[in-house]
Design a protein around this nucleic acid. Structure first.
Lengths: 96, 96
DNA sequence: CACATTATGTTTGCATTATAAACAAGTTTA
DNA sequence: TAAACTTGTTTATAATGCAAACATAATGTG
């Protein structure tokens, strides 16, 4: 039993944190993710775009209290990818 | 409870696989790691060097059947780092 | 009203990383 | 001896990560 490949989209600290959060809360806006992950805005913006481009999340832009607000939600593909990733990486953690 | 940072030395597919293997078998040579990880020689060589440079493993060069043989073994720091990494990444996998 | 400050993100630029191709050095086989 | 195999290292470059700089609009403040 070799090591399963790790989805490169998810094998990144910030993107993994984002997806991990979204799996739990189902939906979240930019500011929430910013707060929970501790990332910079720039990095968060970039990584959200990559997750979107991968088809793992859906981004909806709207307004909240007159301010722009970006809302993120995992797609079914995103949820599935997370599950696959979790299963795969657990193989690597044996021996722990 | 935020997300703990993930040791960048270990947060790499090949290096993690190497360390994971070494935690189990205690000691292994280049060819064994090559076979088990499926990596290319070049990549394996580079990543072993990085693990060594990080102080996570000790490399001993010798001969086996007249051929050069590189033997790898985790240092205590390497073992500790793996444990810390495992604990840290498990936080990200909640919701699975 | 004018001007600073806050809120929310995006784009850009540079340093780091990952990885395979090319190279090296020696051994076995025919 | 020449070809092929074994064991690894170095190098070149493409991809990635990340924060600084930029952009835009709303809100306070004097």
């Amino acid at each position: 039993m070799g090591f399963a490949p790790l989805d490169p989209v998810l094998h990144n600290q910030l993107r993994l944190a984002i997806v991990s959060l979204l799996v739990s809360v189902d939906q979240a806006d930019f500011t929430f993710l910013l707060d929970r992950t501790g990332a910079t805005r720039g990095n968060l913006s970039v990584q959200l775009s990559k997750l979107k481009e991968a088809g793992y999340l859906e981004i909806t832009k709207g307004y909240k209290n007159n301010y722009p607000s970006t809302t993120c939600k995992l797609t079914p593909a995103g949820i599935k990818a997370f599950e696959v990733y979790v299963k795969a990486i657990k193989e690597y953690l044996k021996g722990s």
